[in-house]
Amino acid sequence: MDKQALKNKVIETVDILADELKAISLFLHKNPELGEQEYKAAQRLIESVNQHGFSIKQNISGYETAFIASKGTTGPKIAFLAEYDALPKLGHACGHNLIAAMSLGAAVAFSAAAGNQACAYLIGCPAEETTGAKTAMASDGIFDGLSAAMIVHPSDNNNLGGTAYATHPLQVTFHGRPAHVASKTDKGINALDALVMFYSGIKSLRQTFTQETILTGIITKGGTAPNIVPDEAEAKLTIRALSSSYLENTVIPAVRKLADGVALATGTRVTAFHYEPLFKELINDKKLMDLFHKNMILLGESVTILDPADADGSTDVGNVSHAAPTIHPDISIGCNISAHTPEFALAAGSNYAQERILVGAKAMAMTAIDLL
């Protein structure tokens, strides 16, 4: 069977799967679960892919809701990544219900077309919005040896390329000594004063970096009562850069040095730790991008090609891209909508978005066919 015949088989298979994929997407949308709690979502996906003859491994890299579904033993190893966690109060405002359905459809369609010429994987990846299971999975070698890894994200446009920021969130806590604010004998050591000094210093520090850097935060603890000198004050920072190397070797050491200097100047003690793992920058594979673009055109879709340095958000897919050739394109599910908003959550459950599942699944599976 030639390549076009295999692609026609992919299209036919996804169309046959249409009702199943839409039902899975809407089930996830109506039953949103937070990261590491996606028991219903993972079970629904596992049941579906198991019915299509895939072998299942569960409890991956310490995550109960992670899984690896595979079919085939020889040829290129192509993985389609499923995300299925939701956001607090907003539900599927990032469209992970659509991502899960697209990747499942792509895996099943690619396997049906490729037969014994390739090994197809559906890899269930929990907690993208929080701890990022892909970071642990990448460290454990789950993505090593893959010929390609693909995932398509809902958006307000069809985009291809660009990158995502490397990020390593940091919690900084200053420790002082409590006292009554009116005490004449003990003025205490004000941890909040130290934190405010540190917070103010962040703005000046941000100007010293030679590469694009995002450095912002919030004060999450500033004391217990206004008549008590705060003995503990805490901030959570989001620290991002265009490369994980610059982030880890330049930006974060500078932030820690600033905190140490403030502690020395104020007589406080400071502690800091990363409350979420390192998400590396996203590297979109040029070859896969070209193939995906051509397949979107075959499907009648126009695509905006982004500059390689055009960064948008952060994702643990970045860690995958450092282990295997990866693409993370966007597919439009509406106009003028932004992720992590109530409007996006509504769009992710719309009839139009369910139809877009079929386009994303076909484009990924057709790109996998090209790799044969």
Rank of each mutant, 00 (worst) to 15 (best):
I11Q: 15
L104A: 03
P178A: 15
T210M: 10
Y63P: 00
A254E: 13
T367H: 09
G217E: 10
T304S: 05
T167I: 06
H328F: 04
E248H: 01
L372V: 05
G222S: 15
V10K: 07
A112H: 05
D186M: 10
A348L: 04
A361Y: 00
I219R: 13
I357W: 04
D290G: 09
A120D: 14
A348D: 01
G35N: 03
Q117R: 03
A109S: 09
A194R: 15
L346R: 04
F273D: 15
I228R: 03
N97V: 05
G124M: 06
C125I: 14
M137S: 02
R356L: 10
G267M: 11
G75R: 07
A263Q: 12
H340N: 03
K184T: 12
S48L: 02
K236G: 05
Q354M: 14
N249D: 05
R206P: 09
V152H: 10
I46Q: 15
Q117T: 04
T213E: 14
F292N: 09
T266D: 01
V317E: 02
S183D: 02
Y275N: 11
A365W: 00
K221I: 13
N59L: 05
T135R: 12
P308D: 15
D193L: 12
M366G: 09
I252W: 13
L45P: 02
A365P: 03
T13N: 10
A101V: 14
K184H: 08
L306C: 02
G35W: 13
I327K: 11
N284Q: 15
E343P: 01
Q207A: 01
Q171F: 11
T73G: 13
T210S: 12
G223Y: 07
H274E: 15
L192S: 11
T73V: 08
Y39C: 15
L90R: 00
I337W: 01
N97L: 06
G124C: 13
V10R: 12
G318S: 00
T315N: 04
K40D: 06
K236S: 10
R356F: 04
T216M: 06
P325D: 05
A339M: 00
S70I: 14
G217Q: 09
N351S: 15
L215I: 15
A136Y: 06
E248C: 04
S338C: 07
